[in-house]
Structure formats: C-alpha cells, structure tokens
Design a protein around this nucleic acid. Structure first.
Lengths: 253, 253
DNA sequence: CGATCTATTGAAGGGGATCAAAGCGAGTGG
DNA sequence: CCACTCGCTTTGATCCCCTTCAATAGATCG
C-alpha cells in the first residue's frame, strides 16, 4: 500500500495537540496518518498534527450513528471498527471493517451513512471537518492522496460487489480471508496467520450470509485442509493457492 | 447533483479538438463534461476541450477489456454502457451502468478492472491519461471535483452492497428502479417513466439474481399495481411510495 | 465451578436457481 | 401484407442450497 516514511519529520513536533494525553500519543497518531497519506512533506505533517486529536474508543463503543451530522474525519490508529447499515427489520450489512491506518471520511454526504462501532479496544485520530477543509485547500497534495485512496476504495467496493452478488459461501469466505491477510500483512502481521477481530455474525453480515453458514463454511475449509483454526479468532492459512483458486481469484488487482 | 452552468463559457472555443468531426461534437462533448465537473471556470473548460476527443460507440461494441492497460478516461455523452466483471466459469457481475454525464476513470489501477460495453448506440468523450494528469496538476479545482465524484460513487457502492447482501429480489428490483428513475430525471427524463437501456439478464447480473427471477419479480410488481410495463424496456412507476417502502428505502441519502 | 455469551452442529423448510418450454416482438424476405 | 425466423422474455416444474429453528458444545469471566 503505502511505503514507510522516514521518521525525521516527526522531530519537528514541539507541543502536544490539545486533547492528546501525552506527546507519545500524538506521535503515534501522526505515524498512522502518514500511513494513510504517505510521502507528505514535513510542512504538511506538522499542519496535520496541529489539528489532530487522539481519542480512545473501548470495545463496543459507538463513534457515530447513521443519520447524525458529520463533524470529524478519523484515522484508526489501533483496534478495529465496523461500519454497519441496519434496515428497519434488523437486517444488517457491514460495509467494511476498519483496520489501523484506514481513513474514515470519504463520503459525499454531510451525515453519517452508517453506524461506526468498535469491535476491539481502539484509538482514533480525529480532525474537525472545517479544519480538514482548510488543510485540503492549502495542500493540494493532500487532496490528491485522498482521491487516490478513494479510488482504491472504489476498486475494493467493486470486488466486494462481485463477491456479494456472485460467489458461493465458500468462495466468499476464502476471498474474505485472503483480503484480510493482505491487509494485515503490511501492519506487521504474518500473511499466513490472520487474526479475526470480528465475530462470526459480523463476518456473516459482511458477506451476506447467516452466522450458521459462516460457521459451517469455516468447518468445511478446515476439513479440506485449506485453513486451520488454532483459536476462534485466529485463522492459519495452510494452502494459500488453494484458497485463491477457490475464491475465483479476480486476479489482476 | 450538478447545477447547470451558464453556457457563455463555451463561446470561447475557437477550434475543434483533433478527432472531433465537427465543432458541434466538441460543444456537445464539453457540455457533458460540465455536467460532471460543474462550476468549472471558463479557463478550465477551454483546457478540457482542447484535449477531448469525441468517439462513437455502436451498440454491442467494447470500449475496453478487463486487464488491458488504461490509456484514457471517458465521459459518456449519449447512450449507455455496462461495466462487467466475468469469472472464469462465466458468472457475471455488472458493477454499474453508465449513463450520459457519468465519468469513467476513477480507479486506483493502471489496468482496466472490467469490460466496458455499449448497451446502446453511444458516444464518449476521451481524454488521454497523461493529459488528464497535466490538467489535474494545473487545476486543483478539477481534482476536488473528481474527489467529490469519487465520494458519491463510494456512497452508491455502499448502497449497492446492502442491496446485494441483504435485500430480497422484489426489494432489490424496487431499489434499482427508484435509483434509475432518480438518475434519469436530471437528464430530462420523467421520474415516473423509466427507460431501461439494459435487458433482463443485465439487470440480473447487476442485482445478483437470475434472469428468470428478475422477470418473475417484474410480473409480481406489475400485478401488485406498483408499476406498469407499457413496453419491455419502459417502466411506469405507479406507486412511488409503495416502491420506496418495499425497497426498505435506506432513507437519509 | 457455574453463568453467560458465542460458536458449532443438527433437522426441517422455503426460496431462488436450474432446466425446459411456450410467448412475444422486431426484423426479414417472399 | 403476411409468414417466418431469431432473440429475448415470460411462465412452468423440479431441485438443491441456504436459511431458519433448535439444541449442544465451548470459551470467557466472575
């Protein structure tokens, strides 16, 4: 995704942003911002840091609800979130899971379009919309990075649509696991050992299945020798090529 | 969506862009560009026109295939396209239908991610990637408009995911018809009379159903008095509120 | 160790897919 | 002008997979 940034720019920070409990928080915060908007200039980094507030978000907490007016954009620095849309009768669709480094705020609406909920103890970086607007006007480079990120998310959304519309349960799950592995790998994780921050029900609501079908499909993949399940929330990918073949791949990413 | 632009800027054009058969083509072309990137300055409009080439695309023609390197971005000026992803075994997913005014080129990949096919006699405006890059660098305003458009498409993609994953056939079709009506309305169409440029099979591959189910569902909606089908490709919306209720709405857009 | 939540496994039912055939409509040629 | 043909759509009958409902197993925590 984004190549690591030389840490030197961070030394320019001289005072913690308001709301940051410690300077260390701010630094951590900034590093994650860099993961999103790679190759920013020191100038841009400083400007971002000045308006950024780090905010903890315990497991189960709700950062925003669908329909509320948007006030901030966020970057996840640790933990995991889910973006949930719920129908009147309770049916849920999880648009996506948010992992550290992900940016939250690419929408055309001035209201939240889904609930944002923490599925693990998390920490987000918060920037007020108005300040973000100023920054974007001042640093065209930042805008370009956001556009780039938006385009990548559009590609991912098209992939998800293909999976939702045309893949069978086993194919959906294989596809899901491979994507998750690919996303966790650059965060320092092992590509062959995937940690699932979400429960079976959440996976089901993401893939358009029921929890039971997800569970059964996990069992089937395990019995086929494609994966192992050392713990409930840990998947070991035993046969990456097999999974890829099963997922119908969608190759040329 | 985008408010109409005063036509005066167009008078600044003094020579047709290379490849345009007539000046009228260029003007038409530009008008559509304006529909996409509303409120551009006369300067920006001229710059866009200079690098734009109008290109006809007969029904059934393929503009690009998945995997090919991307060379241009496009704007559809007339007709209709479909964006198709096909699996090895023939299963298809139509990511979206492209209607006049739509922009084609918001992707993070330098290769096409789907086949682009004309489902009606069409005409596109073409701009070389390199020239588009120059334009974007020179006019930050253009970049901002593209980002805005990308965010809107992300919202639409999330809606589509909810529909694909959690709605039943009748709900999917109701949702689809309402969205199509909303898209055709600003193009001068009647919101209560929707023209379907695509066949039943295409609708099926867009909604994750089979052609048979789509057909049966059309019949059901007609028998329920929600719609009428004067011709195969014309839908009359008789009970907009009923359709909206059926589609589970997803309200707050 | 028991309580509670989540995941897994089992049995039964339904809804959409699949296979197959009949309509319908536009275009063609006699 | 009509008959014919070809493609697409509609309708029908059957089947299978996923859902639903229900019960068991497992994990986490007090």
């Amino acid at each position: 995704m984004s190549r690591p940034h030389s840490g030197t720019a961070l030394s320019a920070v001289d005072d913690p942003a308001p709301g940051c409990s410690t300077l260390k928080d701010c630094l951590h915060c900034s590093v994650r911002h860099l993961a999103v908007c790679s190759a920013l200039s020191p100038d841009e980094v400083q400007a971002l840091e000045r308006v950024t507030i780090s905010q903890p978000l315990p497991l189960g907490a709700t950062l925003a609800r669908a329909g509320e007016p948007r006030q901030h954009v966020y970057t996840l620095t640790s933990g995991a979130l889910r973006l949930v849309r719920t129908l009147a009768d309770g049916r849920r669709q999880i648009s996506s899971f948010v992992l550290p480094g992900d940016y939250l705020g690419l929408t055309g609406s001035d209201h939240h379009r889904y609930d944002i909920e923490a599925i693990a103890d998390s920490r987000v970086c918060r920037v007020a919309l108005s300040q973000m607007k100023d920054l974007r006007a001042r640093y065209p480079h930042l805008e370009r990075k956001l556009l780039q990120r938006a385009c990548q998310e559009l590609d991912a959304a098209a992939d998800a649509a293909l999976a939702l519309g045309r893949l069978q349960p086993a194919e959906k799950l294989a596809d899901f696991l491979l994507r998750l592995a690919a996303r966790e790998a650059p965060l320092g994780g092992n590509a062959l050992r995937v940690t699932l921050p979400m429960g079976r029900g959440d996976i089901a609501d993401h893939l358009g299945l029921t929890m039971e079908t997800v569970s059964r499909t996990f069992t089937k993949l395990r019995q086929s020798g494609l994966i192992a399940l050392p713990h409930l929330n840990t998947v070991e990918i035993l046969d990456q090529d097999g999974l890829r073949e099963l997922s119908a791949d969608e190759g040329w990413a």
